[in-house]
């Protein structure tokens, strides 16, 4: 008889031949595949940096290494929060998991905001998809990474919402979940609009309180929308009922964590190759 004698109920008990949960193995295999996606994109970028086209811009005049370093740091910190979220979920601490997930979302959004700002800024400087080969490879590579982060954020949001699923299966929670998701989406977009307005005001009038006020003034509607949707989110952020979310769901959080860390690591490589190496 083998070591595995005894029946295994794969779908149900999460016991697997190797002991590694299916979802985790799936995520590892997917990340291996995703590595190749980024490898192909990064190679394209590097090849065209080594064979620059005549229309290549002076990259150093375009990059703002301080901002990108800051957003890199933020993304790294989000990984820390993600790790804490995984830890909390493994201990079955729902409230802590939620907080850490929210933190990760927040940092992820800051990163995305920086990227949106950066893209916006670069386009103003004349670097577009069409303007040069550097623009094409740069936007495609960092854009693909940005999409990965955005998908990660959406996934985090959905997981956050999932933590409110009532343990009492007869209780409907769909309306609540949809409201939360919509509020999240609206708040995110509105926040980005406000932040863009503020930064632009800052660029014009100097970075001070006046600029903040000016920026908010310029995007008053967005600010109000942001306020309302945030209020809804806060209002919905408590659950008084027993939830169907615990250690059993830790594997979902862990899988998401793997993805998030991977996206971070990829960014470290992109940051090094696309940004830092230009300063050599």
């Amino acid at each position: 008889m083998s070591a595995h004698a005894g029946t295994i109920d794969h779908h149900h008990d999460h016991t697997t031949t190797t002991g590694i949960p299916n979802k985790k193995l799936f995520m590892w295999a997917f990340l291996a595949s995703d590595c190749m996606f980024f490898a192909a994109l990064i190679s394209t970028h590097v090849i065209y940096r080594l064979h620059p086209t005549p229309d290549s811009p002076d990259v150093l005049k375009i990059f703002s290494i301080e901002l990108t370093s800051f957003s890199t740091f933020i993304l790294l910190m989000s990984s820390l929060l993600m790790a804490l979220a995984v830890g909390a979920s493994q201990k079955g601490k729902v409230e802590a998991t939620r907080k850490m997930i929210l933190g990760t979302i927040f940092f992820g959004l800051i990163f995305l905001g920086c990227q949106v700002y950066e893209f916006n800024h670069f386009v103003h400087l004349g670097l577009t998809l069409k303007s040069s080969m550097f623009g094409a490879t740069f936007y495609t590579l960092t854009g693909t990474h940005g999409v990965h982060v955005a998908i990660g954020v959406v996934w985090l949001v959905l997981t956050y919402i999932r933590t409110f699923k009532p343990a009492d299966a007869s209780k409907s929670w769909i309306a609540r979940a949809v409201t939360q998701f919509v509020a999240f989406s609206v708040a995110t977009v509105a926040f980005m609009v406000v932040m863009l307005a503020v930064t632009h005001a800052g660029a014009e009038h100097g970075y001070n309180l006046g600029a903040l006020v000016k920026g908010v003034e310029h995007s008053l509607v967005a600010t109000i929308v942001f306020g309302v949707s945030s209020a809804i989110l806060v209002a919905l952020s408590r659950s008084s009922w027993a939830v169907d979310f615990g250690e059993a769901n830790a594997i979902d959080v862990e899988g998401m964590g793997l993805y998030w860390h991977f996206v971070d690591i990829v960014w470290i490589i992109i940051f090094t190759v696309v940004y830092l190496l230009e300063y050599l």
């Binding site: 794969h10 697997t16 031949t17 590694i20 299916n22 193995l25 799936f26 295999a29 997917f30 595949s33």
Partner: peptide, 15 residues
């Protein structure tokens, strides 16, 4: 991806 996970993780006992 599905096949990889299946083959690695869902083999019958003793396989």
């Amino acid at each position: 991806l599905n096949f990889i996970v299946t083959i690695i993780n869902m083999r019958a006992p003793g396989l």
